[in-house]
Simulated scan of single mutants.
Amino acid sequence: MTTTAGAPATATTRRSFWSGLRKARELPVTIALVVLVAATYLANPLFLSPQGTKDLLLNATIMIILAAGQTLVIITRNIDLSVGSILGLVAFMTGSLFAGVEGIPIWIVFAAGLLFGALLGAVNGLLVTLAGVPALVITLGTLYVYRGINNWWAGGTQYFADDRPAAFGNLAVDTVLGFPIITLIAIVVVVALAIYLSGARSGRDLYAIGSDPAAATLFGIKVNRRVMFAFLVNGLLAGLAGVLYAARFNSVGATTGTGMELDVVAAAVVGGVAIFGGSGSVVGAALGAMLLTTITSALTAVRVDKFWQQAIVGVLILLAIVIDRIAAVRSARKLRLSEATR
Rank of each mutant, 00 (worst) to 15 (best):
M1L: 09
T2I: 12
T3M: 11
A7Y: 15
A7F: 14
T13F: 10
R14K: 13
R15A: 14
R25H: 03
L27H: 01
P28F: 00
V35T: 04
V37S: 01
A38W: 02
T40A: 02
N44M: 08
T53W: 05
K54C: 07
L56W: 12
L56I: 11
L57H: 13
L58N: 08
L58A: 11
T61S: 14
I62G: 00
G69W: 13
G69M: 14
G69L: 11
V73F: 10
T76S: 07
N78A: 03
D80N: 12
G84E: 10
G88S: 00
V90A: 08
S96C: 07
L97V: 01
G103L: 04
W107H: 14
G113K: 02
L114N: 01
A118P: 09
A135P: 01
A135G: 09
T139I: 08
G141N: 08
Y144T: 15
R147N: 08
G148M: 12
G148D: 09
W152D: 12
W153P: 00
A154T: 04
A154H: 00
G155C: 11
Q158C: 06
Y159I: 08
Y159F: 07
A161Q: 05
A161F: 14
A161P: 10
D162F: 13
R164E: 03
A167E: 14
G169E: 05
N170V: 03
A172F: 06
V173N: 06
V173T: 15
D174M: 13
D174I: 11
G178C: 04
P180W: 07
P180E: 01
I181F: 06
V190I: 09
A192P: 12
Y196N: 05
Y196R: 00
S198W: 10
G199L: 06
G199K: 09
G203C: 12
G203L: 06
G203N: 06
R204W: 07
R204D: 09
D205W: 10
Y207D: 12
A208E: 08
G210S: 03
A214R: 15
A216M: 00
L218E: 09
I221Y: 00
V223E: 01
N224R: 07
R226S: 10
M228G: 04
L232M: 14
A238I: 11
G239M: 05
G239V: 05
G239Q: 12
A241I: 09
G242D: 04
V243W: 08
V243S: 00
L244Y: 00
Y245L: 11
R248T: 10
R248G: 02
N250L: 07
V252S: 04
G253K: 02
T256S: 02
E261M: 08
E261V: 06
D263W: 09
D263E: 07
V265R: 01
A267P: 12
A268P: 04
V269P: 07
V269I: 15
V269F: 08
V273Q: 15
V273N: 04
F276Y: 14
G277A: 10
G278V: 14
V282R: 02
A286D: 00
G288N: 06
L291E: 05
T296A: 13
L299V: 05
L299F: 15
A301K: 00
W308F: 13
A311D: 03
I312D: 02
V313C: 05
L318C: 08
I321H: 01
V322A: 14
D324Q: 05
R325T: 15
I326V: 13
I326L: 06
R330P: 06
S331K: 15
A332L: 12
L335T: 14
R336E: 11
L337F: 13
L337Y: 03
T341Y: 14
T341H: 13
R342Q: 06
